[in-house]
Simulated assay, not measured.
Amino acid sequence: MAPLRAASRALGAAVALGAVSGSVAAHTGTTHAGTPHWLLFVLAVLGLASAVGALTAYRRRRLAGPVAAPVGLLAALVGAFGLVGLVELQVVAETGPQIRDVYPTLSLVVGAAMAVGSLVAGRLRWPNRPRYAGLGILLAAWVVYPVIMPNGGTYHPAGYALVAAVLFAVAYILKRDAWGVVQSLRRDRRPLTAGGLAGVLFAVFFAFSAGTVTFNPDSGIGAPTDTTVVFLPVADPLVAWPAVEFVFPSVPMAGFVSLGTLALLALLGSLVATNVGVLVQQARAESASGGRTSALGMAATSGATACCCCAPAFYGVLSVLFGAAATPAYWAFLDPTSPVGGVFFAASVVLLLGSVVRATGGSASVA
């Protein structure tokens, strides 16, 4: 796997993972700040493709570094603008589809399959590392929690304990199986800078794709017309968290910040930053030795697969192609009783964490 392809896929993972939260900002219409929705889609595709092209040209020595860097950065910014526009504007019918009745049953089936699969995989492949199966069971519980708890478990202590347990399990696995590479990143300025930058980019995209910040606030009857800042609970992720909601109509800008979203951002942002740091570190080592690094390829593959977790951007593309007919896909991510949002969150955690562990050789089977 060429370092260039690995880096481009890692960039895709960093930009795309903003979708793992269960909420998505929804707005009706076909334009965003006067821009046709299809044009945002074109900007996203062309921008990201041009960024990859600039990196390819630099790798093949067809562009000098001082030229390739600003061209690639500009192209990435154009692509990011298009992606943000896509997640900002959603064409959605006001009522959910009838298939919502099957969501609870589907969540139970999917959660049970995840738990059983985690136990089987842990027993057969990592019998001496029960922490892997434990994380899988916790992620399965994340999927079924809104279904099995009374009133969705919005204020139940078990929900807060589950969120804390997932955070602890990820940190524990990193400590046990990948702490060496984490420590090396802290002492290596270039990978550390690259990882930090990726984390910042991810945070920005996460804020828009999760609906926590928008430059296209809802307007109409009942919408605030003056600057408003209020404190209220927000039930995402899983349970209600203290939050600050703000609306600045003159910007225009609106959004909220809660303890839950900050915890989710810390979890995913740290995994994204670590992955990118590992990729840069291994790419530099590969370039110096003139060889190939298989772990780099595996990490890039995992990062590329994690791009499928970009739920809002995925729905934005569908709404460009099918308009309001794509509403069922929107509600599949929005409805807390649907397993889709939880499964995509679980996949993001497993893929990003797994790629870091594999990069250190920590995922080798232990008999």
Score class of each variant (00 low, 15 high):
Thr95Phe: 08
Ala2Asp: 11
Pro237Val: 02
Leu201Ala: 15
Leu264Gln: 06
Thr305Val: 14
Trp241Asp: 07
Val278Ile: 02
Glu286Phe: 01
Tyr58Trp: 08
Arg62Ile: 08
Thr274Lys: 07
Gly260Trp: 01
Asp335Leu: 06
Val272Ser: 14
Ala359Asn: 05
Asn128Cys: 08
Pro70Ser: 09
Thr105Tyr: 01
Arg123Gln: 05
Gly316His: 10
Ala171Ser: 15
Ala115Gln: 04
Ser355Thr: 06
Ser355Tyr: 03
Pro157Val: 07
Phe246Asp: 08
Ala68His: 03
Thr31Gln: 15
Ala235Lys: 14
Phe246Trp: 11
Tyr315Asn: 13
Thr56Gln: 11
Leu108Lys: 03
Phe205Val: 15
Gly159Tyr: 09
Thr56Tyr: 07
Leu124Phe: 02
Gly18Ala: 07
Ala164Asn: 09
Leu4Trp: 05
Val276Gly: 09
Pro336Gly: 09
Arg5Trp: 13
Gly255Ser: 10
Ala64Met: 06
Gln282Arg: 14
Thr228Phe: 04
Arg187Leu: 14
Leu138Ile: 09
Thr301Pro: 02
Val204Pro: 03
Arg292Trp: 00
Leu268Gln: 02
Trp126Lys: 06
Thr274Asp: 01
Ala51His: 00
Ala326Ser: 12
Val87Ala: 15
Ala113Thr: 09
Phe231His: 13
Tyr132Gln: 01
Ala69Arg: 04
Val78Cys: 13
Lys175Met: 06
Arg292Tyr: 04
Val143Leu: 00
Gly290Glu: 05
Cys308Trp: 08
Ser107Arg: 11
Gly362Ile: 03
Gly34Tyr: 09
Phe246Glu: 03
Leu73Tyr: 07
Ser219Asn: 08
Leu40Ala: 02
Leu46Thr: 12
Phe168Tyr: 11
Val276Ser: 12
Pro3His: 09
Ala194Met: 11
Leu40Ile: 10
Ala266Trp: 05
Ser107Lys: 12
Arg61Ala: 11
Gly260Ile: 03
Gln281Ala: 15
Thr261Asp: 10
Val120Thr: 02
Ala93Gly: 06
Val229Ala: 09
Ala75Ser: 01
Leu197Trp: 07
Val251Met: 00
